[in-house]
Design a protein around this nucleic acid. Sequence first.
DNA 1: CGGTGCCTTGAGTGCGCTCAATTAAAGTGG
DNA 2: CCACTTTAATTGAGCGCACTCAAGGCACCG
Lengths: 251, 251
Amino acid sequence: MNALSDHPLALMVRRLEAHGEIAADDRQALLDLRFKSRTLEPSAYVVREGDRPIVCGVLLSGFAYRQKQTSDGLRQIVSLHIPGECLDFQHLFLGVADHSVQMLSRGEVAFIAMRDLQDLLAERPGVARAIMMTTLVEASIFREWILNVGRRDARGRLAHLLCEFAVRMRAQGLVGEGGYLAPVTQEQLADALGLTAVHVSRTLKSLEMDGLIERIKRTVTFRSWKRLSEIADFNLRYLHLNDDEPFHQES
Amino acid sequence: MNALSDHPLALMVRRLEAHGEIAADDRQALLDLRFKSRTLEPSAYVVREGDRPIVCGVLLSGFAYRQKQTSDGLRQIVSLHIPGECLDFQHLFLGVADHSVQMLSRGEVAFIAMRDLQDLLAERPGVARAIMMTTLVEASIFREWILNVGRRDARGRLAHLLCEFAVRMRAQGLVGEGGYLAPVTQEQLADALGLTAVHVSRTLKSLEMDGLIERIKRTVTFRSWKRLSEIADFNLRYLHLNDDEPFHQES
DNA sequence: CGGTGCCTTGAGTGCGCTCAATTAAAGTGG
DNA sequence: CCACTTTAATTGAGCGCACTCAAGGCACCG
């Protein structure tokens, strides 16, 4: 679009503006942040539970997830992350990480010093506001996931995850039509949904049989957004996207 | 304790300081916030999904909860709130409420204009930091709840909720020994745990039979913190309390 | 071409649900 | 102060969604 889009952090700024515009000087200050980027392999840690994070990872490409575990090793994925998202605002002012963030696919991560971010926040209310909004929306997504895992059946849960992912990707300008979800094993999907991998396999098949989705390997394509979002009981209010262009699809 | 403790908002300040100290002038600025307090009856709304909140409720006494619903009326409680907690930081910069907050018991709520809060945040980085930390810890609790609902069985879930509630009450100076959970019906408990009221009844009984808790009406007393927290798989790291005095109990 | 990781499918099980009846407790009004 | 109503909790019986265990298929890769 404009000159900014070549900047590595441009996608991060776009993400931060998803819930409200940022003034030009604040935007520039964000782009001026120093960072070191690194390519990480699937399942590499960005943050590890128990660490005291001193850098904040920003996903430039690829996908990541946030995870917690019970002491007997049961895993729960508590969020999925797409390019442009900041992976560690959650620990911005908190000492010890209460969960881990890992790569889902291979991808590039820009690391910004926590300290620099904190300083920027203190100096620039506009930036503080944007970051605050983003973390509040993240919290809103957590709440929706509690509802998802707590009150929807397997089909609803899975459909909801697919819908959310598609809408977020689209809001980031990362996908055109019928949403897809590439680099996730069924086991990871299960861990995000509070199910088992076996049941995710059956549930995906059932959605496919009903003509709601199509699958080629791990790539899911929507065949009927309308029916899928009904099954999912999907309402995008909780994503607080400010462009009122809702997610629309032909079928 | 000190002169401040008579101030209606003193408990709010205490809550905000649970994760890090606040400078004296920032603390004073918080206490100087204008507010109107009102007594609300059980199940009265503090915020309603779909509203555009222009005030932020602070719980002065009594208990409240945050709730979402599926379109077919299934309810999920996504958090419980104790005196001193701010009930609407979650919508501080977000336009439309994505969930509702209601009273659990009768209690007093102080309403502060969103606008005043936003201005205070912009002017005072120290206050912004404190509020940011509090909302980040709330997010951390949401994550733990996803894990709770997604990966623990009924006993574990219930035990975990009891432990968390006790620790938070204690951190707020609201309870001495063996934690209790007063004004919650079993149906509300069920909605917080992703269970049914019938099963909560059975699960409470099972915890009681095993000598882990005692019940008199709705009041739960812990008989063995150690064993209960083991069943709960409870680790308080996610609460990010900065006083390293962990929750200890004789038995 | 065997190894490995992921997915699929079948068969049997169980945790938590539904439906329903009973008891207990807390209001409510004559 | 006691009938009447309402709301909450308990308990039993039966069911079903999702789980476990296990075998087999498929794709990718050294």
